[in-house]
Nucleic acid binder design. Sequence first.
DNA 1: ATGATATTGTTGACCTGGACAACAAATTTC
DNA 2: GAAATTTGTTGTCCAGGTCAACAATATCAT
Lengths: 178, 178
Amino acid sequence: MAVSARKEAISAPVAARVQPVPGRRPGRQPPPRAVDLGALNAHLGYFIRRVQVWVFQDIIRSLKPLDMSPAQYSALLLIGANPGLSQAALAGTLGVQRARLVRLLHKLERRGLMRRQQSSADGRANALRLTAKGQDTLRRAQTLAAEHEARLMERLGAEPYRIMRDLLREFVARGGAG
Amino acid sequence: MAVSARKEAISAPVAARVQPVPGRRPGRQPPPRAVDLGALNAHLGYFIRRVQVWVFQDIIRSLKPLDMSPAQYSALLLIGANPGLSQAALAGTLGVQRARLVRLLHKLERRGLMRRQQSSADGRANALRLTAKGQDTLRRAQTLAAEHEARLMERLGAEPYRIMRDLLREFVARGGAG
DNA sequence: ATGATATTGTTGACCTGGACAACAAATTTC
DNA sequence: GAAATTTGTTGTCCAGGTCAACAATATCAT
């Protein structure tokens, strides 16, 4: 069919083929990604990681005005929802090491967002509570996080967003990520 | 005092409530997770991260016999599928910094799994190719990765696995993670 | 052509996070 | 009451990611 397919003869020694793909991109980024993913296409983990990286970058940028990391935000959120929580329980729920949580809470406490008071029930444990400032900061963080969530939904599409959220929530809830 | 709900509606001062949840767990892990996730339930990013952490730990363990990281594996995979690829193109596809990729490739090259030869087309670029040993190692890595993938599918369920893989593959393909 | 600009691979420095081991204090178990 | 376990903590190590700079090469504008 005579579509001037001469070049095809070579067995594509290098991936120099640029997909025509008319329209679409206004033309900001030069490299149009003509790389064959190969067997990577069969690895769900790869795609999960790519999405996770994007989500992380976006939420980090979203919370930057409050000088807060995603980990700090999730900690504040859980403390706010579970006053008196212990560090071990918090670490277990967030899926991080207790040792890691210690330094994270140090920062939050130094900023006056929450305090550790010795638990009356268990002398070893700390009962974590938000300060008034912490509650206020948390509210503002939630507003920013909601904007991030809207962006994510827009990127994924409303329906895929809903599907994945429900799917993964149930997965995590039944301990699949433990 | 009719405590009543002013705003605090105190109640549950501490999350000491333990869900009974009979059967199921044989009883290995002591903390049964009775923490209210609160607004975290609305954040898809949180669940994505939890799943991603699990996937990462599992693939890391899977590849350990070959002393290979997930990043190294994905690099080998792409080089194998795109002989002559440049480092910049590889970094772009993997979504990592060029600087990071340099040291990663150093290790692979030192182990004799791939080599960099100067590109004939572009004097600046390196053309990456697998060595015979690299191809062999890659094949073995793919076998291990396939077992990991089977475990992931079993955890998620066949249908959710398929749905998410197709959803995210298309998302990444259309540049959503860029 | 030629000078300005951009890209590629590379190195060095820095910071954050995660993983581990050890420890004292407090609690639970037997 | 002795042994084992849990909790918070500190120190240390290491992998990854970011950033700035640089030389060599390529591309672009005039």
